[in-house]
């Protein structure tokens, strides 16, 4: 999908905040100089093309009382798909990436209590038979700001 300037402004704006008001898309439209229906249509196509993953609330898991951790695992190359299948089956696993290191699988686990979180990790070890797994819970959060400036036209849309 080719993004025009309005799409770019729209994406930068709605990554910051969707107005908490009865007609949020009309408020956004007023800001961008387009009407409500066009805002809705543009967001719809940005979603359909996979650029927008979700619009909604993003929570502070710790303040919600949840216990998270970052796990790193050493998985034999040939078993990546199978092991990822097991790990990704947990809805409590929200991120899972292959990284170029001996610890090649990096995923997060988030659960309502440290006990439940640790139980999931033990289950993953048991089901995969891989014991070489580090659990690295956060001690302190310095930053989380997952917003991407899409103004830089040159690099976008390259598949």
């Amino acid at each position: 999908m080719q993004l025009d300037n309005t799409d770019r402004q729209l994406l930068n704006l709605i990554q910051k905040q969707i107005p908490v008001s009865s007609r949020p898309y009309a408020v956004i439209g007023a800001e961008l100089g387009i009407d409500e229906a066009e805002v809705i249509a543009r967001i719809k196509s940005l979603k359909e093309s996979g650029i927008i993953r979700r619009i909604g609330g993003f929570f502070d898991s710790r303040k919600m009382g949840y216990a998270g951790t970052l796990c790193a695992m050493k998985v034999p190359e040939a078993r990546i798909e199978e092991v990822a299948g097991i790990i990704n089956g947990y809805y409590q696993v929200t991120h899972n990436y292959i990284r170029d290191h001996g610890y090649n699988l990096w995923f997060t686990v988030l659960a309502p209590s440290p006990e439940q979180r640790n139980q999931i990790i033990e289950e993953i070890k048991g089901r995969t038979g891989i014991g070489d797994l580090m659990s690295l819970p956060a001690k302190r959060l310095f930053k989380i700001s997952v917003k991407f400036d899409v103004s830089e036209v040159d690099h976008a849309d390259r598949k």
Binding site: Q15, I51, I52, R54, G57, F58, D60, V150, E152, A156
Partner: peptide, 15 residues
């Protein structure tokens, strides 16, 4: 409790 109410983009898809 909520850090943000807005859109999440797939970063790979915006460059």
């Amino acid at each position: 409790l909520m850090r943000r109410f807005g859109a999440a983009v797939r970063h790979q898809r915006v460059g």
